[in-house]
Design a binder for these strands. Structure first.
Lengths: 215, 215
DNA sequence: CTTTTATGAATGAAGG
DNA sequence: CCTTCATTCATAAAAG
C-alpha cells in the first residue's frame, strides 16, 4: 500500500507516554502507530538507502538502454541557464545562489555526520571535487555549507516555552518543539541526470531482508 | 510514494515489543508503522528525498525513452519534502509554524516600531519571555519575526520607490502556478494542464504511472 | 473547495 | 566561529 499516514499528530513526549497513537488513514481506516526507536530508524534508513541504490542501478540500466538520450536539458542547478535570457537583453542575472542537489546534500550530510568537525582546506578541495560530479559547486560553497551546518546544528535547541495554556489563537498547540535543523531541502535541480550508486553515502549497501518486496 | 510496509515484514522484531503495533487498514491489510520523533522524521525525510529525486530522474528518463513527446506531459514532481509529506498526509510530523496571537503581534509590532533595529540575543530572550505570557512562542520565533519584518519592510520601500518591478514580479509568478500537493491520489481535476518552461523547480507532486514497476 | 496572499521558516552567502 | 542579510519555500489565512 502506499504509505499514507494521516491524522492527528503525535508530537514527541515522554517515552512512556507515546505508546499508542491512533491515526486516521486517508481512506478512513484507523491505525495505531508508535514512535520509532533509533534502531528501527536506522533500519528504515538502510532500507531506504538500498531502495535508492536500486533506483540508481535502474537509472544506470536506462542509461545504457538509451545511450543516445540527450537529456542535455541544460538545467544548471536552479539557474535559468537559458541562453535566450542573455540575448533577451537584461536580466542576465540568473539565480546566483548555489543549491545543493539532493545527492550532493546527502554526501555533505554524510561527511558532516562522520564527525570530522573541521573540514580543513585540503578536505574541502576533495569534497568539492567529489561533489562537482553531481552538479556545479565551488569550494566556497562547501566551506559555507559546513560553516552554516555547524552553526545551525548548534543553535537548534532553542526551547519553546509553552507555559500557560492561554493561547487564544490556535497556536496549534505544542508543536513538536524541535527546531531541528536537518534540512529536507531538495530542489531537484541537478544537471547530472544519472546519479551513480556510489554517489550515495549510505553505509550499508547490501540488501537487507526487509527489502525483499522490492525485488 | 511507494514505501510498502506490509505483510510479514517485521523489522527488528526483538525490539522492545511496544515499539511496533499492528494496524488494520481499511482494506483489511495489516501494516506495521511507527511514529517518529521530529528529528528522526526529518532525517528520514531527507533520505527519502534523495530517493525520490532519483525516482524522478528515472521517470523522466523513462518518459524520454518511451515517448519522445515534448512538453506534453507535465512535470514530475517536486519534492521538497513531498515524499513524506505527500504520503504522510500532513499531520504526523507536519511542519507547523508558529502563528502569533493578536496580542503577541501587537507587542512585537510595537517593539519593532520603537526603532531598536537590532534585537540582540539578550533582547530576544526578554521579548520571548514576555510574549510567552500570551501564548506559546520560542526565541526562534521572535528572531525570525524580526528578521522577516525588517527584510520585508525594507523591501517594500525599495519596491515602491524604484519602478523596477521586474525581479519582484518574476519571482512571484514563478512560484504562483504550482499545485501544492495533498495526496498522490487522483486529484487530476485542477492541475494546470499547461506545463511551463519556467517550471524549473517543478512542483507537480504526482508521480507518473511509470513508477509503478517499482512497487 | 480552490486560488491567492501573507508570513513563518530555512538556508546560502557575506561580514566581523 | 558567530551574526546578519537576501532569497526562497511552504503553509496558514484570506479571498473567491
Amino acid at each position: 500500500m502506499i504509505m499514507e499516514w494521516e491524522g492527528e499528530e503525535r508530537h514527541q513526549e515522554n517515552q512512556t507516554q507515546r505508546d499508542m497513537v491512533n491515526v486516521n488513514v486517508k481512506n478512513g481506516g484507523v491505525m495505531y502507530v508508535k514512535v520509532m526507536t533509533d534502531e528501527q530508524l536506522e533500519t528504515l534508513r538502510n532500507q531506504i538507502a538500498v531502495y535508492a541504490s536500486i533506483c540508481e542501478q535502474l537509472v544506470e540500466m536506462h542509461k545504457n538502454l538509451t545511450a543516445q538520450q540527450d537529456l542535455a536539458g541544460g538545467r544548471l542547478g536552479n539557474l535559468y541557464c537559458d541562453p535566450l535570457m542573455a540575448s533577451a537583453g537584461h536580466k542576465i542575472t540568473a539565480r546566483q545562489r548555489w543549491t545543493p542537489t539532493p545527492v550532493q546534500l546527502q554526501i555533505l550530510e554524510c561527511i558532516f555526520e562522520q564527525g570530522t568537525g573541521t573540514p580543513s582546506k585540503q578536505k574541502i578541495k576533495e569534497i568539492t571535487s567529489e561533489l562537482s560530479q553531481h552538479g556545479q559547486i565551488s569550494e566556497m560553497n562547501v566551506y559555507n555549507w559546513f560553516q552554516n551546518r555547524r552553526a545551525r546544528s548548534k543553535r537548534k535547541q532553542l526551547g519553546s516555552s509553552s507555559n500557560n495554556a492561554e493561547s487564544e489563537q490556535e497556536t496549534e498547540v505544542e508543536s513538536a518543539n524541535e527546531k531541528k535543523t536537518t534540512k529536507p531541502e531538495n530542489h531537484l535541480s541537478q544537471q547530472n541526470p544519472a546519479p551513480r550508486a556510489e554517489d550515495l553515502c549510505f553505509q550499508n549497501p547490501e540488501m537487507s531482508p526487509e527489502l525483499h518486496f522490492l525485488s
